Amino acid sequence: MKTIANCVQEIIASSPFLEEGLSREIINFSALAKDLNAPISKMLRKPVKDGAIMMALRRHQLPRHLENSEQLRSVFKNLGDITVRSNLSDFTYHNSNTLIRSHSQILESVSANRQIFYAFTRGMLESNIIISSSEKDRILKAFKDETQIGFQDKLSAISIYLPKGNSKITGLYYQIFKRLAWVNVTLYEVVSTTNEFTIVVEDHLVDKAFSVIKRLKG
């Protein structure tokens, strides 16, 4: 049987900004309880009292990753270089039996020129290539027999070098995504390796995104 506490937990878990506000103790419990009364009453199919909701809010245990743990602070303090690359294009193709063969042609030119930005991701149904826009004609030629389902240019990438052991830190990526979302930065793509994290945004958002990433270091 669902309870008021269950409803509160479900609503907060689906609202990252609400979760953040509660963790920072900047939200008035009484006002929030009144705001949640209608959706909780609908979920329980019966009227509930604001006081009961407020009690559930006070007892709600926030996820540990929302806390400014020593581990998170240490990781952000020890972030490595932040690199920005502009003039990028994004190509998306349906996976096929010949896609890797087409892709191998691009690898030859990329390996010969380290100035070219390049990232390749293969999913279950489609594959994505982010590459310097100077290589657009080469991509179109190499993949001319493939089915292209997406294209976007005027993109920039911000790469962050993370300290070793970052994969063991709970909430690391959450903190990065949260801060970008607070300033309305839309992520076009995300690419990561063990110790390197790259976000791809449209050119008009790169300055705002860079400022957020830079402030992570404190």
Results as ranks from 00 to 15, higher is better:
Asn6Ala: 12
Tyr118Ser: 05
Glu189Arg: 05
Glu25Phe: 12
Leu180Pro: 04
Thr92Glu: 15
Ser109Trp: 04
Ala33Glu: 01
Asn87Ser: 13
Leu18Phe: 13
Tyr188Gln: 13
Lys144Thr: 01
Ile106Phe: 04
Thr198Pro: 03
Ser132Glu: 00
Asp50Pro: 04
Leu125Ile: 01
Ser104Asp: 14
His60Ala: 11
Leu140Ala: 06
Ile4Thr: 01
Thr83Gly: 07
Ser96Gly: 14
Glu196Lys: 08
Phe143Gln: 07
Ser14Pro: 00
Leu155Gly: 08
Val190Ser: 14
Val110Gly: 01
Ile158Ser: 07
Met124Leu: 11
Arg122Val: 10
Asn195Thr: 08
Lys144His: 07
Leu62Phe: 10
Ser211Thr: 15
Gly51Lys: 14
Ile199Tyr: 05
Thr3Cys: 05
Glu189Met: 05
Ala38Phe: 12
Asn37Thr: 14
Trp182Asp: 03
Ser89Ala: 15
Ala142Phe: 00
Cys7Val: 14
His103Gln: 11
Glu108Leu: 00
Ala5Cys: 10
Leu99Lys: 12
Met124Tyr: 11
Asn28Gln: 13
Leu180Asp: 01
Phe117Ser: 00
Glu146Ala: 05
Phe197Val: 09
Gln105Val: 06
Asp90Ala: 07
Ala142Tyr: 01
Arg64Glu: 13
Leu140Tyr: 06
Asn166Arg: 09
Leu162His: 07
Met43Glu: 09
Asn87Ile: 10
Phe177Asn: 02
Ser104Leu: 11
Gln148Asp: 04
